[in-house]
Amino acid sequence: MFVAAFIAASEIGLWVLLGLGLALRYVFRRRRASTVTLALIPVLDALLVGAVALDLHRGAEAGTTHGIAGLYLGFSLAFGPAIVRWADVRFAHRFAGGPAPVKLPKHGPERLAALWREWFRVVLAAAIASVVMLGLVVLVADDSQDPALISWIRPPWTLVGLWLVFGPVWELLTPRQRTPTESERSSSW
């Protein structure tokens, strides 16, 4: 229960720090305070790993919450900077007269490149989650906790495979309707 509450607090903390950091930057024009606030987001992740390690060290039965904590950490670190950039562009547009966010095309090479970048983030997230789980096994867990922690290494890699198939590979294999040229459109009248 302790770890589950810490995961929830980390998720809430992420959005609070993100909102506060962007408000400091664009509403209150406190760029340095904003940078410091946004830099605290990874500290939440470090605290989460510490909480998981402490819980396991105290003899808690390794389970779903410990595995989810590893996944959360991996995805938070891999996707965190992209989430901050995404929110920053939208916040700047809404509150500071920044340019409108650029929409990704529905198809084409630019979309495919974005899907590959996203997939590589998923690979990074899976790698981080796996290293965290192995680190907990080697450094903290006892023999009774090891199997449960090790079992959480496979799910993120399954997600990597699914993301590959339904992301960039899907985009590559989906047939696109050819857009008629200007002369073809005018001759159809």
Rank of each mutant, 00 (worst) to 15 (best):
I83S: 11
H66E: 00
Q177D: 14
R176F: 14
S10C: 08
A60V: 00
G13M: 09
G59W: 15
F79A: 07
L40T: 02
Y72A: 12
G63R: 06
A39K: 08
F120R: 08
L48E: 04
G50V: 03
A113L: 10
Y26I: 00
A51F: 01
G135C: 05
S130T: 15
D45Y: 09
R29S: 14
R85N: 14
L172R: 13
S144C: 02
A23S: 12
R111H: 15
L14Q: 04
S183Q: 15
W152Q: 03
I128W: 11
P81M: 12
P105L: 03
V165C: 12
F79Y: 10
R30S: 12
P168Q: 11
A60H: 01
R85C: 13
D143K: 06
G50N: 14
L38M: 10
G63Q: 02
V137S: 08
T174S: 14
F91C: 03
F2N: 07
L40D: 05
H57S: 13
T64F: 15
E110P: 00
S187G: 12
E11I: 11
L164R: 02
I41V: 15
L71K: 00
A69Y: 10
S187C: 08
I128D: 13
A126D: 07
A96M: 04
G19R: 04
G13Y: 10
V16M: 15
L162N: 06
S130C: 05
S186Q: 14
Q145P: 01
L47I: 05
A114P: 00
G74H: 04
V16E: 14
K103G: 05
G135D: 07
A53F: 00
M1V: 09
P168G: 02
V122W: 07
T158Q: 12
G74D: 05
I153N: 11
P101I: 01
W15Y: 15
P156D: 12
T65C: 05
A62E: 06
R117C: 04
F6I: 01
R117E: 11
L164Q: 03
P180G: 08
V36Q: 08
P105Y: 09
G67N: 05
I7A: 08
E118L: 08
A51K: 05
L136S: 03
D45I: 02
E182C: 01
L172F: 09
R30K: 15
V165E: 06
A148K: 02
G161N: 05
Q177L: 15
G98K: 11
